[in-house]
Design a protein around this nucleic acid. Structure first.
Length: 591
RNA sequence: GGGGUCGUAGUUCAGUUGGUUAGAACGCUGGCCUGUCACGCCAGAGGUCGCGAGUUCGAGUCUCGUCGGCCCCGCCA
């Protein structure tokens, strides 16, 4: 190996302990300060910065070479570590006690002036950052995020390994199946007119691995869903995918709690309390309006249906008459903070989720300030405020609508208020299980039931009779793990008996023939001694995002896509040669 | 599919009721400088105002369209 590449230390680990030693450092020129006689270079690598000094009295040639150095040049330097002179210590640098006097300098590569520097705090548009992702990834924050993400998956792997899990890879080129998200399709050259689909998750394969007797499987794996992007959604994302045989919810919960606790301990040094609280789906909806409640603050929803029964206020009366709900939040001690403008903005939020409006009452010292109190008798108002626990200074916000709109609107109002009024304790990490989901939800558009989780989720109670008599009332053995209002994992106990699975497909309006065509391999596998099994899948990107305190999932993915699912660095997706299309026997419909 | 928001030197931004040669800071280039660390001082270069139409004597500014980034609704079993 060339001597200039025989790196002895990283930039960032040198301290007074190495004083007197001759060291070799490799890295990028972060800043260069040329004093004519003396040249200072801050040398950067992933571990930090070291100031190196080029003094013509130490080495004439090195000093001369250093004059051509520019920002981002890649260099190797050799020299002696010395204590900085009196008063020249830089407390802002970890290595600020020392500097290295260079006697040998090699320019390993030059660099164009970059459009921006990852090392500076300056705000740069996200488009430019994505185009030059390799520059952005030099930033301390992104380097930290990627390293932390790696540690999360490493701890997860360790915990699962300790519990007898085997990591098994499953196909990326697989079969398109109905239900769920839109598939990414891959044409097959040797089978013209036929397509693979990239997996939305390894769901069916992991169940079949249970039939195969693997007993405990996991995989840290990319999944693909061709749906619109969000702050926390990318078209390709990573799951920690887990499946166990001969296990029930309790086994899985304890395993996951151990894993999450260990991740928090190892990565953030935070001790989590286990077991995590369990909230039933319907309770979560009633209390928070959401199946992924943020438990870092209170402000729970209160039902007022019985209190306002018989009111003259037409809006409430009509909603109740048509089977709707009237529910409200008591925003404690907010009457002063909530301006008219803020209430208008909150009303807009409520409208986003389908509400026609948002009523409110401010409880002032001597009066109730509100656009709606004039419609109420005093006695009803007293009962209403009593039910809400209303005190002077509180604001009560109401939504009256269908149960779904009431829940959605109040859930988002609660979050907006929680953040705007700083009621969310952001130092907390509140995890909870959400259980007892409905098995099915009615799809108005399709005019049939659809699986709320997925079609392989076992119904609670093993009640086959009920599956036909009242499918809407069935509960699923499904569970989500929620962290600070984010769904970070979801899973279920699966159906392991062919006849139950058949019944499930019937309920979903999938005929025997279609089921056989799409899922025949699974149905068949269930007939060959499928053990009871269940599992869970974690969204690694989201966990990494939350633990990093990042605003977007993009900040924990090395090469993320834009909202239009493009990669600004590679320019993917792109057109392809006609030749490639011909080989695939594909042609565009130009109509 | 829909709503919102942003787009002006390499970068971040300013740019008045539509009016002369579109500015600043940082960065960049050259020169000077032996204790700087956001080095300093002097000089300089750098613009398809995202793109395309339109209105106007005249458009960075107004109108329409379009492209792109971000946030949201729908969608995401």
């Amino acid at each position: 190996m060339k001597s200039e590449l025989r790196r002895t230390h990283h930039c960032g680990e040198l301290s007074t302990a190495q004083i007197g030693e001759t060291v070799t450092l490799c890295g990028w020129v972060h800043t260069r300060r040329d004093h004519g006689g003396l040249i200072f270079v801050d040398l950067w690598d992933k571990e930090g910065l070291t100031q190196v000094v080029l003094n013509p009295q130490i080495d004439q040639l090195a000093h001369q070479n250093a004059q051509s150095l520019r920002g981002n040049y890649v260099i190797s330097v050799r020299g002696q570590v010395r204590a900085r002179p009196e008063g020249m210590v830089n407390p802002k640098l970890n290595t600020g006690q020392i500097e290295v006097y260079i006697d040998d300098l090699h320019i390993l590569n030059t660099s164009k002036t970059p459009p921006f520097s990852g090392w500076e705090d300056q705000e740069v548009s996200e488009a430019l950052r994505l185009r030059y992702r390799y520059l952005d990834l030099r930033s301390e924050q992104l380097q930290k995020n990627l390293k932390q993400r790696y540690r999360i998956s490493k701890v997860a792997r360790n915990v699962l390994d300790r519990h007898g899990f085997t990591e098994v890879e499953t196909p990326m080129l697989t079969k398109s199946t109905p239900e769920g998200a839109r598939d990414y399709l891959v044409p097959s050259r040797v089978n013209p007119q036929k397509f693979y689909a990239l997996p939305q998750s390894p769901q069916l394969f992991k169940q079949i691995l249970m039939v195969a007797g693997l007993d405990r499987y996991f995989q840290i794996v990319k999944c693909f869903r061709d749906e619109d992007l969000r702050q926390d959604r990318q078209p390709e994302f990573t799951q920690i995918d887990v499946e166990l045989s001969f296990a029930d919810e309790a086994t899985i919960f304890r395993l996951v709690e151990e894993m999450m606790a260990e991740i928090y301990q190892e990565v953030l040094g935070i001790t989590l309390e286990t077991p995590f609280p369990v909230i039933r789906y319907q309770d979560a909806i009633d209390r928070f309006g959401s199946d992924k409640p943020d438990l870092r603050f209170g402000m729970e929803i209160v039902d007022l249906g019985d209190v306002v029964q018989g009111t003259n206020f037409k809006v409430f009366a009509e909603v109740l008459a048509s089977g709707g709900q009237v529910r409200a939040l008591n925003v404690k001690n907010s009457a002063e903070a909530l301006s008219r403008k803020m209430l208008d903005d909150l009303t807009e939020i409520a409208r986003t989720y389908g509400a026609k409006g948002m009523a409110w009452i401010k409880i002032q010292k001597d009066e109730l300030q509100s656009p709606i109190t004039k419609f109420f008798e005093k006695e009803m108002l007293d009962r209403l405020i009593d039910r809400m626990g209303g005190e002077v200074g509180d604001t009560i916000v109401f939504i009256a609508d269908t149960p779904k709109v009431v829940a959605d609107a109040l859930a988002h109002l609660r979050l907006a208020l929680g953040h705007q009024l700083k009621r969310v304790d952001t130092s907390q990490h509140r995890l909870a299980w959400i259980t007892d989901f409905p098995l099915l939800e009615y799809d108005e558009e399709a005019g049939r039931y659809a699986a709320m989780h997925h079609p392989f989720t076992a119904p609670a109670g093993d009640d086959l009779g009920k599956m036909t008599s009242d499918p809407g009332a069935l509960t699923a053995r499904a569970y989500d793990l929620v962290l600070n209002g984010n769904e970070i994992a979801g899973g279920s106990i699966r159906i392991h008996q062919r006849d139950v699975q058949n019944r499930m497909f019937e309920l979903l309006g999938i005929g025997a023939e279609e089921a056989d065509e799409k899922f025949g391999f699974l149905l068949e596998a269930l007939e060959f001694g499928a053990p009871p099994h269940g599992g869970i899948a974690f969204g690694l990107d989201r966990i990494a995002m939350l633990l990093a305190g990042a605003d977007s999932i993009r900040d924990v993915i090395a090469f993320p896509k834009t909202q239009k699912a493009t990669c600004l660095m590679t320019q993917a997706p792109s057109t392809v040669d006609l030749k490639q299309l011909r080989e695939l026997k594909l042609k565009f419909d130009l109509s």
